[in-house]
Amino acid sequence: MLDSGVRIAYERRGAGQPVVLVGGTGMPPVAWELCGLRDALVDAGCEVVTYAARGVAPSDAPSAPYSMADMAGDLAGLLDVLGIRSAVVIGYSLGSFTAELLVRKRPDLVRSMVLMAGAGPVTGVLEAVLDAEAELIGATGRLPAAFLRLQTLLTTLPGQVLLEDEKQVRAWLELLGAQDDIWASPDGAVGQSTAADGWLRDPGRIAALADVLVPVLVLAFEADLYFPPRAAKVAAEALPQGTFVTLPGAHGGLLTHPAETTAAILGFLTPS
């Protein structure tokens, strides 16, 4: 249990340079194992920490709303509890927001950082999604499971797959059918949505990247509707030590193109 009173479930694997993997919205820690990144980092000589962010089972889901200060505070508290004084922080989507705020609030904890599918200014598509989620929460107090499944499906797979590969679409729908079980309670989905909304609507967010002094890999997927390469490149150029890489795939490229993603991250951590 952290000083905030929130219980965070975590796992440590391997030995060596500490690396913490920070998941996206509703992302269970097992996803890092399924995409192969966790084991690749362990094999490369890293100690890897994965955890379930507040709202995601089996961690606690305090009452919504949440803020990114809450999410980053949980991560800082976890690293303090584990005695990790400096780590590579790899964030995906919402996890990138957490990583960004962590390095701004606790730069002592971050040795270097990867912002994957989660950096750059808000695009029109992303703004429309934020508005839809906020309206649903305001009207019903929750985010319906069917809405979350549709949203994830349409953004995880590239358009060509959605158009032509019905077998893969159906397989993803079946996988996403278990999404309800990911959340510790309905407050988890609402809380993480409100945290992302507040973060993305902050007008000073991009300018603040100039104060991030550690090496940062900004990783974009070429068909990402939320954070396309043109948006991610803005973030990379605002960072004093930013490196920009584009990979194939959509917003879910971490899962649909794991080999390319893992290679890019390992190349950043162990440059030749």
Rank of each mutant, 00 (worst) to 15 (best):
A146R: 15
T155S: 12
G191P: 01
P271M: 09
Q168D: 01
R205D: 07
R201W: 04
P203L: 05
A117Y: 07
L157A: 05
C35L: 15
C35H: 10
A145F: 01
I265Y: 00
A72M: 06
L219A: 08
A184G: 09
L219S: 10
A171L: 14
L219Y: 08
A259Q: 13
A145D: 13
L176D: 07
P248V: 06
A231G: 09
V122I: 13
L266D: 00
P203W: 03
T98N: 07
R104I: 07
V89P: 00
F244K: 06
G83H: 09
A259E: 15
S86Y: 05
P58T: 04
Q160K: 08
G191C: 01
A231E: 15
A119Q: 02
F147H: 15
P107H: 14
D39L: 10
C46Q: 11
E100C: 05
V216I: 03
C46D: 13
Y10S: 04
V81I: 14
L136K: 11
P229R: 12
G204M: 03
P58V: 05
Q192P: 06
F97G: 13
C46W: 06
E237F: 02
R13T: 12
V48Y: 03
T156V: 04
L254A: 04
M116A: 14
G45S: 14
V30D: 08
R54I: 04
L254D: 01
A231Y: 08
G138I: 06
P58G: 05
H251Y: 06
G77M: 10
G23E: 01
G252C: 04
L21F: 00
G83I: 08
I90H: 00
M27Q: 14
V103A: 11
D108K: 10
S59W: 03
A132R: 10
L255A: 07
A146M: 11
L94R: 03
A210W: 03
Q160S: 09
G77T: 12
V30S: 09
G159D: 09
L173M: 14
I84P: 12
L78M: 13
G91C: 01
A223R: 11
P215C: 12
L269F: 07
Q17D: 15
L154A: 04
G14Q: 09
W199N: 10
S63C: 12
G252I: 01
